[in-house]
Amino acid sequence: DVEPGKFYKGVVTRIEKYGAFINLNEQVRGLLRPRDMISLRAENLNVGDEIIVQAIDVRPEKREIDFKYIP
């Protein structure tokens, strides 16, 4: 289970104008929005990159997770 405030290692699987999709594993995926990329620009991300993200909002009923990148 993903808990708000905890840090996780994930892999960038898709990049859109509104953010990057980060997979923690095959069943868990969330969104890293540009406003939550402190000191990281979306254009510096590539599909396949491994990054550490913090879960900031977890909505299990919608199967949605928002992440924040903190260097």
Rank of each mutant, 00 (worst) to 15 (best):
D57M: 14
V58T: 05
T13Y: 07
R63G: 15
D49N: 05
I22D: 01
I22R: 00
V47I: 13
N46P: 00
R14A: 10
E26D: 14
I51T: 00
K68R: 15
E64T: 08
P71F: 09
G30F: 08
L40E: 04
Y69M: 07
G10N: 01
Y8L: 01
I22C: 02
N44F: 12
E64N: 07
L31A: 02
V53M: 06
G19V: 07
R33W: 06
G30M: 06
E50N: 09
P60E: 08
L40Y: 06
G10S: 01
A20D: 01
L24D: 01
A55P: 02
V47K: 02
S39G: 15
I22S: 00
E16A: 12
G19R: 07
I65R: 02
R29D: 06
N46M: 13
L24N: 00
F21E: 04
D66K: 12
K6G: 07
E64K: 06
I22Q: 00
L40I: 11
E61W: 10
T13V: 10
G30Y: 05
G30C: 09
L45E: 00
R29Y: 14
P34N: 15
D66R: 14
V47W: 03
P34R: 15
V2Y: 08
P34E: 12
K17P: 13
K62D: 08
F7T: 05
K17A: 11
F67M: 04
P34W: 15
A20I: 15
F7C: 13
G48D: 02
P71M: 12
L32K: 02
L45R: 01
L45K: 04
I65E: 04
A42F: 15
V11Q: 05
I15R: 02
Q27H: 15
V2Q: 02
I65K: 03
N25T: 11
K17Q: 11
A42P: 15
P4I: 15
R33I: 09
E43H: 13
L40S: 07
F67G: 03
F21V: 11
R29L: 10
F7D: 01
Y18I: 11
V12T: 00
V53A: 01
E50L: 14
K6E: 06
T13C: 08
N46V: 12
A55I: 15
I38W: 07
V12R: 00
T13R: 03
Y18A: 06
G48H: 02
Y69A: 03
P4Q: 11
K68C: 11
L31H: 04
I22Y: 01
I38F: 09
D66G: 07
R59P: 02
A55N: 01
E50M: 14
A42R: 12
K68T: 06
E16C: 14
P34I: 15
L31W: 07
R33G: 06
Y18W: 15
N23V: 10
M37H: 04
R63T: 07
L40A: 06
G19A: 05
P60Y: 10
R29M: 14
V53R: 00
I52D: 02
A20M: 10
G30K: 03
L31S: 04
L45Q: 00
R63K: 14
P71T: 10
L40H: 06
F21P: 00
D49F: 07
M37P: 03
E50A: 11
I56Y: 12
I65V: 10
N46H: 14
P60Q: 07
R33K: 09
S39Q: 13
G48Y: 02
E50G: 06
K6T: 06
L40G: 06
P4A: 12
R63I: 07
V47M: 04
G19L: 08
Q27A: 13
P34G: 11
K9S: 07
I70P: 03
A42W: 15
E16T: 15
N46C: 14
E16N: 12
E3W: 10
K62A: 11
R35M: 09
I56N: 03
I38V: 12
K17W: 15
Y18Q: 06
V11R: 10
E16S: 13
K62W: 07
I22F: 07
G5N: 05
R35P: 07
E50C: 15
E50Y: 15
E3Y: 11
L32P: 02
L45F: 06
V53I: 07
E3S: 11
N44L: 13
L32T: 02
G5S: 03
V53H: 01
Y18K: 06
P71Q: 09
K62E: 08
P4R: 13
S39N: 14
P60W: 12
I22E: 00
A55K: 02
V11D: 01
I70V: 14
I52Y: 10
I51D: 00
P60F: 09
F7R: 05
V11H: 06
N23I: 10
G48Q: 01
T13Q: 04
A55L: 06
D66V: 13
R35I: 09
P34L: 15
A20P: 02
Y69D: 03
E26S: 15
K62Y: 08
Q27M: 11
K68N: 04
G19W: 07
V11C: 08
F21I: 14
N46I: 09
F67N: 03
E61Y: 07
R14E: 04
E16V: 13
V58S: 06
K62P: 05
I51A: 00
I22N: 00
N23R: 12
D66S: 13
N44Q: 15
L40P: 03
D49Y: 07
V53N: 00
R59F: 04
E50T: 15
D49G: 02
G5I: 02
Y69P: 03
Y69G: 02
I38T: 10
G10H: 01
A55R: 02
R33C: 10
V11F: 08
L45I: 13
I70N: 08
I38N: 13
G10M: 05
E61N: 11
K9M: 09
Q27G: 13
G19Y: 08
V2C: 07
R14Y: 05
Y8I: 01
L24K: 00
R59K: 05
R63L: 11
V47F: 02
E64V: 07
Q27R: 14
K9I: 13
P71A: 13
N44Y: 12
I70Q: 08
R29C: 14
E43G: 10
